[in-house]
């Protein structure tokens, strides 16, 4: 089903929000991490600055997030992976609280305990984690719960193409098909598992081919395009809601940045990322909206100003919030 004007605009705005959020993060993340403020001899200090630790950004991969999440409601579950911000934003995770979490602040989604790879927002049923492939069976669990409760909710597991070589992926697919679970397995194929190209890690060219082994539809979306993803996901979500079982979708997408911020990327051809950026999916969708009369310079500027204000407020909230008391480290090991 073609996206409505409303959905097209939502995808456009959300992609801009994701991109702007992450570009702001590129700068904030670097604060305090470079010489001369760090240990002598280091080029970079991953544990320094206001946002310490690993940082995996998704610039270039926005179409996957918006094309799928455009079909979802708050009751539908999304399980992301170690590179989670685009999915979180597209699922409607609270931006201020998500940002505060990355600053390690008590106002964060997890009171500062989780950090950027471990975001949990039960209000919109979003979660993610840092172990590759682990989300696929967890999405099965959310789908099973929906089925048992008689709801038409669906669950989405998002993960990279590298994760499709984990045992957990294959076990989850078999189980989902066997039990006809309302779940989508969405593979983001950005061609790189950290430094390893897909051709060196994966025995099939398209992970969509693996769906046949589990008797479920497998769809390969070959363009990094929000509308193409929307169309593929629309049918899969509808099928899941009808109780007809899972679908595997692989989307060809592009990773503009390193695996993590600070990745020297010596393994990657130098001109690859700049070349990929020439096919940026955001201006592409913008051009389509303009051609349909849904966007002009003025409305575009308005959209961008509104997003910029929201993002600035989120970072300000994160930065200015207090840290938790150190002794809070001892709380929440058990729920009660």
């Amino acid at each position: 089903m073609e996206p409505s004007s409303e959905k097209l605009l939502w995808m456009y705005k959300t992609m801009i929000e994701i991109r702007e959020y992450e570009e702001a993060m590129v700068k904030v993340y670097l604060e305090g991490k470079l010489p001369p403020k760090i240990q002598k001899g280091l080029a970079f200090d991953i544990g320094a600055g206001p946002v310490p630790g690993e940082m995996h950004l998704a610039a270039g991969q926005e179409p996957v997030a918006v094309g799928v999440c455009a079909h979802l409601h708050a009751e539908d579950s999304v399980v992301g992976a170690h590179r989670p911000h685009h999915f979180a934003i597209a699922k409607g995770v609270r931006l201020n609280e998500m940002t505060a979490e990355m600053f390690g602040k008590v106002t964060g989604l997890g009171r500062g305990k989780g950090g950027h790879m471990h975001l949990f927002d039960p209000k919109v049923k979003f979660s993610c984690g840092g172990i590759v492939g682990a989300g696929a069976p967890q999405a099965c669990g959310a789908a099973l719960a929906a089925k048992k409760m008689g709801k038409d909710w669906v669950a989405i597991a998002f993960f990279g193409e590298g994760a499709a070589n984990q045992g957990a992926f294959h076990e989850a697919l078999n189980l989902a098909s066997l039990w006809k679970l309302p779940v989508l397995f969405v593979v983001e194929d950005n061609s790189w598992g950290i430094s390893v190209p897909k051709s060196m890690s994966t025995s099939v060219a398209s992970n969509a081919d693996r769906a046949a082994a589990y008797a479920m539809p497998g769809i390969r979306v070959d363009r990094n395009d929000a509308v193409d993803v929307y169309m593929a996901a629309g049918e899969a979500v509808a099928r899941a809601r009808r109780g007809e079982g899972p679908t595997l979708i692989e989307v060809k997408t592009d990773r503009y940045l390193g695996h993590f911020q600070g990745d020297p990327e010596a393994y990657r051809p130098k001109d690859e990322a700049p070349t990929l950026r020439k096919d940026d999916p955001i201006p592409a969708l913008g051009a389509m909206l303009r051609s349909r009369g849904l966007l002009n310079d003025e409305t575009d500027a308005g959209i961008r100003a509104e997003i910029a204000a929201r993002i600035e407020a989120a970072y300000e909230f994160g930065r200015s919030s207090p840290y938790p008391e150190a002794s809070e480290a001892l709380q929440h090991v058990f729920s009660s």
Binding site: G104, G112, S327, A329, L330
Partner: peptide
Amino acid sequence: VPDVPIPFSRPLEQFA
């Protein structure tokens, strides 16, 4: 480590 997972936030991690 006092039987808690390693927390992210700097003051919590330094404590744990």
